[in-house]
């Protein structure tokens, strides 16, 4: 099993850059595999920093730490803008980026958008831009033909993770994603959540091993969660991530494992 760090970053002083770099270096040196940025939903509440620019700082300070977005509300984002931003971050990090989606209820209730359907269209458009030399796509809101979007992600695309949600979200995940994110799923709800995932994968005819399972827990529950997944391998958790509401100090990162 691998371990990761996730955090919102709310520092507003001039030391922001140095603090991010120090924490990221500590995470890599301590043996963590990944660094997860908070999602749109968390940043809207906390007033936290932009996830992509923060991850770029993490990338600059490390060599092999995986970079992860944990919760883009993609229906509220332009696919061409987001495709460019993510391809660029992948370029700056030499191919270390994976992408996390939040398909829960829309943040702006006035928009009237059906979040999962719009997000699926935007994701399909982005994947076309990332993978096709002369990209073509025809959707309800987005259309292009002969589009050149360079640079493209190192692998011709990014692995996509989706946060746990209702059965509709899990069906979308089963069709479109490479990973499941149990974002702050309580320990006593984890078996049921994973059973829901397994059911959705079964309906979609996808083998369970194709989808990575990442469980993200509050930082102060990390040790307990580690014991839970170690004691029950049948849960199939591939990665355990400690979530912090603010940027953790290097010594706190080192103390986790």
């Amino acid at each position: 099993m691998e371990f990761g760090i996730a955090c919102d970053i709310t520092t507003v002083g001039p030391g922001l850059l140095g603090e991010i770099e120090a924490a990221a270096e500590a995470a890599e040196q301590a043996g963590f595999a990944t660094w997860w940025a908070s999602g749109d939903r968390e940043q809207a509440v906390s007033g936290g920093h932009d996830a992509v620019l923060a991850l770029q700082c993490v990338a600059r300070a490390t060599e092999g730490l995986g970079l992860r977005l944990s919760g883009d509300v993609l229906s509220a984002r332009s696919p061409a803008v987001r495709a460019k931003q993510l391809a660029t971050l992948d370029w700056f990090s030499d191919g270390r980026l994976e992408y996390g989606l939040d398909l829960g209820a829309v943040l702006d209730q006035d928009s009237g958008e059906t979040n999962p359907r719009t997000a699926a269209e935007h994701l399909a458009a982005m994947r076309a831009l990332w993978s096709q030399p002369r990209a073509a796509f025809e959707g309800e809101r987005v259309a292009f033909r002969g589009a050149i979007a360079l640079p493209r992600p190192a692998g011709g695309g990014l692995k996509v993770h989706v946060r746990h949600g209702d059965p509709a979200v899990l069906r979308m995940l089963a069709r479109h994603a490479d990973g499941w994110l149990g974002w702050l799923v309580p320990a006593d709800e984890l078996p049921a959540a994973l059973a829901g995932l397994a059911a959705a994968l079964g309906e979609a005819g996808r083998p369970a091993v194709e989808v990575r399972r990442t469980w993200l827990v509050p930082g102060d529950e990390f040790a307990q969660a580690r014991d839970i997944v170690s004691a029950d391998p049948s849960l199939g958790v591939d990665e355990l991530v400690a979530v912090f509401g603010t940027l953790p100090a290097p010594e706190r990162v080192r103390a986790l494992i």
């Binding site: 920093h49 932009d50 984002r77 332009s78 061409a80 803008v81």
Partner: peptide, 19 residues
């Protein structure tokens, strides 16, 4: 082509990162 809420968050982060 930008959502101003997202852009302002990006700008604020960039402003701090670039001094």
């Amino acid at each position: 082509l930008r959502d101003p809420r997202l852009l302002v968050r990006e700008l604020a982060t960039l402003d701090l990162l670039t001094g």
